[in-house]
Write a protein that binds this DNA or RNA. Structure first.
Length: 306
DNA sequence: AAGACGAAAGTGGTTGA
DNA sequence: TCAACAACTTTCGTCTT
């Protein structure tokens, strides 16, 4: 699947689709062309042979986002049934009985969880296949009895965040908390809970994942964004980043980059989109400039030029 | 007046005895 | 399990532009 469009910023044609983030970005200059893009091509991806095996199918798509996997039909309630003529009445009663048998607690819970998920994923602009993955993992969770004794919504929020982390989708805990209505701490708790019990491994967040999103929210030039990425990479090499919040690092790098490229944003503006305080931006900024010599030089040069 | 800076005190999470 | 600890937040006063 190759792109033939050229980047409007630098003319290079090395565009890269980033399905996870719903973005298209230019490899050369880092410009984000479309960050609300969702859903291209197949809705699932083969990550390993095992999950691919599970999801490969023919015929009507089997989907995890509907509790009966898209194959079922609701059978009407009693009042409706008794209005039917004799012959049909009997038939429908039998069907309803059958449906009641398969309507276990699990399915009822799934139904609730999945309608919640639908709401969440549309608010977060998640690609289809991510929604599917969340549904799949929640289904797994419920079959392992992880939901018992826990609030459905809370577990869903944990699974949502876990999948976002698995796929490097830069959404913060706060954002998940906001759309789910679950307290931030509980989201984090449930994230750990499901990760532990389902053996989901997640790496620490790479600050670079946040940069393109923050930069486009601030309407920063592509050059600034590239610069910020560069700064973060150097910072990682020097091991300045470990133990620090990735959001803070990304924010600090963006602040410096914007200063260097003469399109300075205030600490407050950056703090706002990065979802950290000004103080954190400040500390990160200070730490980065202290430890990375070339930044001091470039900042001085920028100041002299203006 | 707005922005940047930093001190002080409080919070929640991690770590190591 | 508890205490020490580092990072982050909130608040606020003071400098700088």
């Amino acid at each position: 699947m190759k792109e033939i469009i050229k980047c409007p910023e630098c003319g290079e044609s090395q565009l890269q689709r980033n399905k996870e983030k719903g973005e298209v970005l230019c490899k050369a200059c880092g410009l984000v062309l479309d960050d609300k893009m969702v859903d291209f091509g197949q809705e699932w991806k083969e990550y390993d042979s095992e999950s691919a095996e599970k999801r490969r199918r023919t015929g009507a798509p089997l989907t995890y986002t509907q509790d009966d996997r898209g194959l079922g039909t609701e059978i009407g309630r009693k009042q409706d049934i008794y209005r039917l003529a004799g012959k049909n009445k009997h038939k429908f009663q039998r069907l309803r009985l059958w449906q009641r048998r398969v309507s276990t607690a699990i399915e009822a819970n799934l139904r609730l969880a999945l309608s919640e998920l639908k709401r969440i994923s549309s608010l977060l602009n998640l690609p289809n296949y991510v929604e599917e993955e969340i549904a799949r993992i929640y289904t797994e969770a419920i079959h392992k009895g992880l939901v018992r004794g826990h609030s459905t919504e809370a577990v869903v929020s944990g699974v949502v965040y876990a999948v976002l982390r698995m796929y490097d989708i830069p959404r913060t805990l706060n954002e998940v908390s906001e759309v789910t209505g679950i307290d931030k701490k509980r989201v984090a708790k449930n994230f750990k809970y499901v990760s532990r019990n389902l053996n989901i491994r997640t790496l620490p967040i790479d600050p670079i994942n946040y940069i393109s999103r923050f930069a486009s929210e601030l309407a920063l030039d592509a050059k600034t964004q590239t610069k910020a990425v560069d700064i973060v990479q150097k910072a990682i090499q020097k091991e300045i980043t470990s133990g620090r919040s990735p959001k803070g690092i990304a924010a600090g790098a963006l602040y410096i980059a914007s200063k260097i490229n003469n399109e300075k944003k205030t600490q407050a503006e950056i703090a706002k989109v990065a979802d950290v305080t000004e103080v954190t931006v400040r500390n990160s900024y200070k730490e980065l400039t202290n430890r990375l010599d070339f930044l001091r030089i470039e900042l001085q040069a920028a100041q002299a030029a203006s």
